[in-house]
Amino acid sequence: MLKVTGLNVSFRTEQGLVRAVENVSFDVAEGELMGIVGESGSGKTVSLLAVMGLITDPNAIITGSIAYRGRELVGLPSKEMRKLRGREIAMIFQDPMTALTPVYTIGWQIAEQILAHEKVSKQAAWQRAIDLLAEVNIPNPGEAVHRYPHQLSGGMRQRVVIAMALSCNPALLVADEPTTALDVTVQAQILDLVAKLRRNHGSAIVFITHDMGVMAEIADRMMVMYAGRVVERGSKEELFLSPRHPYTQALLDSIPPLVGARPRRLRTIPGTPPNLLNRPAGCAFAPRCPQRFEKCSADPQLPAGARAAACFRVNP
């Protein structure tokens, strides 16, 4: 249903062109949960903002193709994009504390979205807001609609954001680190909620996180991004059980285990991610890679196919 092909997003800055996303391709099937893993600056959020048409920076250059149910979104007039946004494609954000307008009640904010897309009465929109709050397990929804964001805890606000995203029954849900700002016990509640909503609504979900544990729990398929590019993709089992790219491998190794014996030292990835302003020639991960060899000075390509890694060790 969503097919992203050769997406590039660059930003013109005073220091030069920052290539935030380079040649990113992926697709999402109906009802599927696609996970994107990467560290900060890997381009995962920017890719999703491009899908949502939410990159408003006049210095941004977006090329490539984003096809939603056969419809090209890159270059779509903003009025057309607006009709899709919130109704067919909805987004959940990272920080629930700042994602809601502080001066309106949560019922008002949910109803606003419904009224923007559907010809229903105000009462009907408010009633739907109450139903949605009940669906995301907010206690006393009839009373909660009249509350302001600051009166709710972080976990409750994230539920409101999710309810809002679901308000027009979108076919595609885009979630940008929706549990990162929450405590683990609340994160567990939200992940359970996401699983329940997938069963009930059948929306396809693109889920960004840097937490491999969260990915292991919810993803169907995954891709790993590094320095603006996709370095590996495959099913969740493939990526966790037999990672091919040294970066995916290293990412998995650097997480301290929660069970079993503790290693005396954690395995680390030396160095830091490259500066996107002057990305090194060749493989961007090569300077930190334990397996680099002569070939890595060239640019590795990500082969087509459901299971692939952009590494010369894998595709010589």
Binding site: G155, T185, Q187, G213, V214, A216, F240, L258
Partner: peptide, 27 residues
């Protein structure tokens, strides 16, 4: 117990087999 069981573990084989104690509500 609840706190530890709430941590998602990056280990595909174990998912689902862990008995998770999900706490309701907030602190």
């Amino acid at each position: 117990q609840a706190l530890i069981s709430a941590v998602p573990v990056p280990d595909v084989g174990k998912v689902g087999s862990r008995g998770r104690v999900v706490l309701t509500g907030d602190v």
